[in-house]
Amino acid sequence: MQKLGVEVLSMSIDSMFVHKMWDDDELKKMVDGGVPFPMLSDAGGKVGKAYGVFDESAGVEARGRFIIDPDGVLQGFEVLTPPVGRNVNETIRQVQAFQLVRETGGAEATPSGWKPGKKTLKPGIDLVGKVWQEWKTDMAFD
């Protein structure tokens, strides 16, 4: 994410004191030097509520992941229940796709299955009804 110029923020209902202990006791054993990004505290779940990820009955936040562009606009999100972890590769792919679209000012779009190096599409009048010539269903897969 750092390579892509993306700032990561994590957030849970735990206090910043617990974040420190978690980083010290466990995460440093997984990541050299500990977690590099700010681990934020949302005790009470007020921010989580604003983002629609706070589970009132459990009192915790779901695995919500939000991609926010430099204008503060939400480009994509994913929310999972607690037992299933995220796919970081897919998040990286989506960030790369949103960055490409932004850099081209929307002149290029990334079709299903796109990843860096694969063909983009150029929306316009010439492409109407012609996507089948430019994009094949097997391109949706790796």
Partner: peptide, 23 residues
């Protein structure tokens, strides 16, 4: 941290159920 201080940058905001959970 104030989120609006990050305007001009891409931000990935990740919520999770809690520290010391398992996944």
């Amino acid at each position: 941290v104030k989120l609006s201080d990050y305007l001009g940058k891409w931000v990935l905001l990740c919520f999770y159920p809690g520290d010391f959970t398992f996944v």
